[in-house]
């Protein structure tokens, strides 16, 4: 038998090959193609014309793209704060519950396992001006939620983010809880002997000890915020008046509604570079000795 077939170092590569093969054709090859398409005016079907950097020039003039980038930024900030804070507090409180903890974990995690369309429909009905809370309040003579927050340009982005955060924070609770269970119990016992309060234990023991998992959650949030699409698409389609438009939504509209596939690829390339910078930043922190 040829030596390369029995080489112990090569065997693991043989097992990885099917996955690498699929990955190449499903992810890598289209990505490389997308890098090339951003230099063309392809409409998705016909002749491909090379247009140089025209799409990039257009992108920097595109007011909708700028708006969408800003909305993605707001989206990321919201997700880095509200669900993280709530999930940390709830996870910490859950560690103190001995009976019925599983029930709470299930309840909090439940929205995460629901399909996005289901989550969206639930909240669309809740905020429906006639059949939802607004209608109920109106019947009580109270003018509250009489207009759906999804339908007002001042609130649409936040309302969509709210629904997505409601679905997402339970996931964070579970991963923080897992991290908290890894913390050595003797540290808390020592703190108890020293008379530390619950908050002090949380601040000086829990947070530092779960730092790797905490940083990982932040990376996940930042990266997942870039291609966010489904909740926006289902609830508002980026409206009203682009007030909830995000970058992936703009990309979809350009590629599949306006048939500007070349231009959409340019947006995709920018998203790719942005994610690359984020990953590079955290890799740099790791090289500098941070536990990330």
């Amino acid at each position: 038998m040829p030596k390369f077939l029995t080489n112990i170092n090569a065997i693991s590569w043989y097992f990885l090959m099917p996955v690498l093969f699929i990955h190449f054709f499903v992810i890598a090859f289209p990505s490389i193609l997308s890098l090339l398409l951003c230099l063309t005016d392809w409409n998705g079907f016909g002749k491909i014309n090379y247009v140089g950097l025209e799409n990039f020039e257009e992108l920097f003039r595109d007011r909708i793209f700028k708006k969408a980038v800003y909305h993605n930024f707001i989206w990321t900030i919201m997700f880095l704060t509200i669900p993280v804070i709530v999930a940390l507090i709830i996870a910490y409180l859950l560690t103190g519950i001995k009976r019925g903890q599983l029930f709470y974990r299930l309840v909090y995690f439940f929205p995460y396992i629901l399909a996005s369309i289901v989550n969206c429909l639930i909240w669309r009905y809740i905020f429906h001006p006639k059949h939802g809370l607004g209608g109920w309040f109106e019947n009580q003579g109270i003018d509250f939620l009489s207009k759906s927050p999804f339908a007002m340009k001042e609130t649409a982005l936040y309302a969509v983010a709210w629904v997505d955060m409601w679905h997402f924070w339970g996931f964070l609770v579970i991963i923080y809880l897992t991290g908290m269970y890894q913390v050595d119990e003797s540290l808390y016992e020592a703190a108890d002997i020293e008379g530390a309060t619950k908050f002090q234990k949380f601040r000086y023991i829990t947070i530092p000890m779960i730092r790797p998992i905490f940083i990982l959650s932040l990376i996940i949030i930042i990266i997942w915020s870039v291609p966010t699409f489904d909740y926006v698409y289902i609830l508002t389609m980026g409206g009203p008046a682009y007030s909830s438009e995000v970058v992936a939504n703009h990309l979809y509209s350009q590629a599949f509604q306006r048939m500007n596939v070349g231009y959409a690829s340019t947006i995709g390339v920018m998203m790719f570079f942005y994610v690359g910078i984020i990953v590079g930043f955290f890799a740099l922190l790791r090289r500098l000795g941070w536990e990330v």
């Binding site: 340009k153 409206g239 009203p240 008046a241 306006r258 048939m259």
Partner: peptide, 19 residues
């Protein structure tokens, strides 16, 4: 055509919004 057609329904909201 596609692009001017999408503009009509996407950007009409921007007029209604007063932007």
């Amino acid at each position: 055509p596609n692009d001017p057609g999408v503009h009509i329904w996407k950007d009409m909201e921007v007029v209604w919004a007063g932007d």
